[in-house]
């Protein structure tokens, strides 16, 4: 059964989520400080778990393009990365890109900090000029 693509539009306090199952891509863009982290990350986790079970030999590309997040989002992101790392340990081909604006040292340091706990996914820090 083909899964439907999973998309959440950005709100003032939550990022845009774009999960393209057929294209094997997931991206999170924007800011994340929702009132309740489970409303944003709960459905995303379920979708991610279902998807990882079907990934097979395909390469899965995950992109984080966040400008701000709060503590529970940070925890949720780490949980996501661990889930991906476990899948990679079990043989999945997964590459993670962590995007940050060149002048945003905080976001760059968060990326470095997260990557220290990952062993199996390919993790790339990418400096990107924000779109005008």
């Amino acid at each position: 059964m083909a899964m439907e693509n999973f998309k959440i539009a950005a709100t003032e306090r939550s990022p845009e989520v774009n999960f393209d199952f057929d294209g094997c891509r997931l991206s999170l863009r924007g800011e994340s400080y929702p009132e309740d982290a489970s409303t944003v990350f709960g459905p995303l986790f379920s979708a991610l778990e279902r998807f990882l079970a079907t990934i097979g030999e395909r390469e899965f590309v995950v992109e984080f393009d966040l400008t701000y997040f709060n503590s529970s989002s940070a925890k949720a992101l780490m949980n996501m990365l661990k889930l991906l790392d476990h899948a990679a340990r079990d043989g999945a081909r997964i590459s993670v890109s962590w995007l940050f604006a060149p002048d945003d040292d905080t976001m760059k340091e968060f990326g470095e900090d997260f990557s220290e706990d990952l062993e199996h996914v390919a993790f790339n820090l990418v400096a990107v000029e924000p779109a005008a």
């Binding site: 489970s38 990350f41 709960g42 986790f45 379920s46 529970s72 925890k75 949720a76 949980n79 661990k82």
Partner: peptide, 10 residues
């Protein structure tokens, strides 16, 4: 679907 918990692993 299991209830989402940030501290699921813990």
């Amino acid at each position: 679907m299991a209830v989402f918990s940030l501290f699921d692993a813990e």
